[in-house]
Amino acid sequence: MSKSEIVIIDSQHEHILFTLEEVCERCNVHTEMIIEMVEYGIVDPVEKSSLDIWYFNSQALMRLQRAQRLMDGLKLNLSGVAFSLELLDEIDGLQKHIVVLRNQLP
């Protein structure tokens, strides 16, 4: 194991926004693909500011990458992946709710 490096996180690390170009670079896709994914409601940009500049937060970035992996791995189309993600979110929410309720049982 090599030497350890110390990283100190300050507040600037906590607000992460990516432009459409940065998202495309990180997902390795064309802008059209991201635009379509937004149109299908897979993610929402954080703010549609005056000049129509889209910003995505890191949750949205990870969701886009997850959507891509699902599309590649399971041969899903956009509406299939949008639907799957919605259901997965719902399951996630329900499971969290079960934990909360279970912890309140005697």
């Binding site: 090599s2 990283v7 690390h13 937060n57 949750q59």
Partner: peptide, 25 residues
């Protein structure tokens, strides 16, 4: 492949699902 170890200082008040970006790491 290289193993590396990072010592990360996590600020007070982080919440579940929050992301912390370490640029260039």
């Amino acid at each position: 492949q290289r193993d590396k170890t990072l010592n990360v200082k996590i600020p007070a008040g982080v919440t579940e699902g929050q992301h912390i970006r370490l640029t260039g790491q």
